[in-house]
Amino acid sequence: MNLWNTVLPYILSGISVGGQYALIAVGYTMVYGILRLINFAHGDVFMVAGLMMVYFAAAMPLYAAIPLMILLTVLLGFTIERVAYKPLRTAPRMSVMISAIGVSYLLQNLALYITGGLNKNYPEIPWISDKITVFGATTTRVTVITPFLTVVLVFALVFLINNTKIGMAMRAVSKDFETAELMGIRINNVISATFVIGTFLAAVGSLLFFSNYPGIVPTSGAMPGLKAFVAAVFGGIGSIPGAVVGAFIIGISESLIKGLDTILLTRGLIAEQMDFSTFSDAVTFVLLIVILVFKPTGLFGEKTTDKV
């Protein structure tokens, strides 16, 4: 077996995971670009979207469940912003971040209460969960369509930001909050729109992410959320293409680490299992720290200077 055949399945699944992270990362990067806030609750919104899908799919047909899930997730994102972040608009940044952590805590506990902490099986979605064969590697269809869907959605988003009035307002607000307000931009509407778009993408991402995984527990959202945020930082926070590139890099490296044992074993480079897969989560943070030390603004970030 040659190297390509050993590595390919991991790269494919890495690209797929990367696509899912990208959809969450865009939400982080947009919110950060405008509010300068790490929205810690975003990962949990993603988890709640998954749980809603579990309950809706049990109660109604899929063609009704999916739109309803997306609608309610968007509503949740909107509500969180209005209730937990808007009152703190003039407060120090740390207070808003603490509020975000509080929301994350609340959502996780709420999910724990409703599910009773049990693992909920994600509904089987026909067609996208089917098995197919790509370049000799067997995988599910969702793995293949995720990156394409991600790219399409992101292009649509970039179009929206560059060519519409609300997009222009978003760019203005992220450049300078106060000046934008003086120019007559309704800050609150722009911020709400950002949250709506961000949570919409997270809802789509959760659909793709969880159909690849056996189940959801209340803490399922925390790790993907953190990784997506790291992806956003990696690509340069505030930059949408950066977040997407960062997400793909992180997805692929995570997947390669998961398979590193097998790859090295089949190549004969190591004699026994080294259990590198323990580090599949940690590698994300190693990448984060490396980029922060060498290029603190990320791959595509703008250079900022501190004013006294």
């Binding site: 300068r36 740390m94 945020f229």
Partner: peptide
């Protein structure tokens, strides 16, 4: 600075 420090230390805890 601020949030970057927060996320980097969070990352170190995970590592």
């Amino acid at each position: 600075k601020s949030d970057y420090l927060a996320i980097a230390t969070l990352g170190f805890a995970e590592i």
